Amino acid sequence: MTSPGSPSQARSLIIERLVGDSGETDQVVDAGRAMAERAVPLLQKGLSGELGIPVIVDLKAVEVSRVPEARSRAGDNFAMTVVGSPASSDAMTLVMDSPAIAIMVSTLFGGDPDMPVSPIERELSSIEADVSTMVLQEVAQALNGSGRRSLELRLPAPRAMSGIEARRHVLRDGAAIRIVLGISTPVDSGSITVTMPQRIVLAGRDATASISEDDHGTSWRARFSEEVMRSTVALEATMPLARLTLGDLANLEVGQVIDFEETAQSRARLGARGQTLFVCEFGKLGQNYTVRIRHPFDAGQDFIDGLMPAGAGRA
């Protein structure tokens, strides 16, 4: 096994192993360009409908990049949002520079598109952040696609960040593709930069066939699975308290004590993201409270137990 020649090379190797190797440059750029070219007419139509005035949207560049470089060309005052998908929590990072924000705000509030707008040289106001969110939502929607090509983005997009929050937001490193869209009027122009991990662009889109022909499809799917398995979730343990009538519940008062049922300790439930996963036993180990997994949660059995008298359910 040959070791990397320098610390920077070692870091790059580790990162690529964690987030997935990059694809072939030509293949990635072609897939990204095809996606952008399909989206531009939809975006121009969507923005014109929101603004009531035609705004020129054109494709400036499609190039390979790294995810943390998403805001590297946006200057000091920009708006940014990160949109997730089932495949990745950071499937799309959208950055709108201050000239584009100024154009959108001026046009939306009745500014003359034939007159230059004043540049934004300060922190964004709440209204400017809201307008930026609306525009970035339109961009994400246009690029999301539909059917087989859909990225399945979690829309609507989160509210745009700006200022210190946007500059300090941590972007996970990885091979990416950068799509630069131009937003312009006859006298002003700005840009919106869309950065996506290369694996998101390639998976399930036009490049899928050629990847499969080279037997790389399984490899890409494995990297998806690895990334999902590395994601973190918050676990919640709950215990059944008691069965009360609605009348009893309505009569509860502050300070009133409610007894646990006798079997409550053995019927604790462990869940994540609103889904119950296991039935557990509540206990204590030293100074720490614990739950011990008894068996996987069975929704069907739980429904049946709910129809039976207390204590007659599953042991």
Rank of each mutant, 00 (worst) to 15 (best):
V194L: 08
R199H: 10
D21V: 13
S126P: 03
F297L: 02
A91I: 02
A160C: 13
F303C: 11
V82G: 05
S189W: 05
T238V: 14
L270E: 03
A87K: 08
K45D: 12
P68N: 05
E69S: 14
P156F: 10
K45S: 13
E123A: 06
P4E: 10
Q301F: 03
V57I: 15
Q44T: 08
R243P: 00
S8C: 06
G274R: 01
E16H: 06
W220S: 10
F297P: 01
S146L: 09
L270N: 00
G306R: 12
R221V: 07
I15A: 04
R199N: 08
Q141L: 06
E69C: 04
S146W: 01
D215G: 03
S189G: 15
S189A: 14
A140P: 09
F278M: 11
Q301K: 11
Y289H: 09
R167F: 14
L153P: 05
L143N: 07
S118V: 12
G306W: 08
P54Y: 05
G217L: 13
P296W: 02
M161A: 13
K60D: 14
M35Y: 06
G49P: 06
R230Y: 00
D173G: 14
F297Q: 02
V29D: 05
S22M: 13
V180K: 05
I15L: 09
E165G: 14
T133M: 06
I14R: 05
T208N: 11
G255Q: 13
G190K: 04
V83E: 05
T25D: 13
T93G: 02
M115R: 13
V83K: 08
D248W: 09
P186Y: 04
Q275I: 03
G204W: 09
Q44K: 12
A264S: 15
S146I: 04
M80W: 11
D259K: 15
D259H: 12
L202G: 02
P119D: 02
M35I: 15
D26M: 13
R199M: 15
G190N: 04
L47P: 06
G163E: 12
R221C: 00
A234Q: 12
K284H: 13
P309A: 10
E128Y: 03
I120W: 04
A237T: 01
V139L: 03
F78V: 05
G75W: 00
V55T: 08
A79I: 01
I103L: 03
R172M: 12
L235D: 04
A272P: 00
V187Y: 01
G32R: 14
D130A: 06
P7F: 13
E253C: 04
E226D: 10
E227K: 09
A142V: 06
P99R: 00
R172K: 15
L43C: 12
R273E: 11
R292L: 13
L171D: 09
P7D: 10
F78C: 07
Q44D: 07
D305K: 09
I192H: 09
D114C: 01
L51T: 05
I183L: 15
G163H: 07
D112S: 02
S89P: 05
S8V: 07
D298N: 07
E213V: 01
R199L: 14
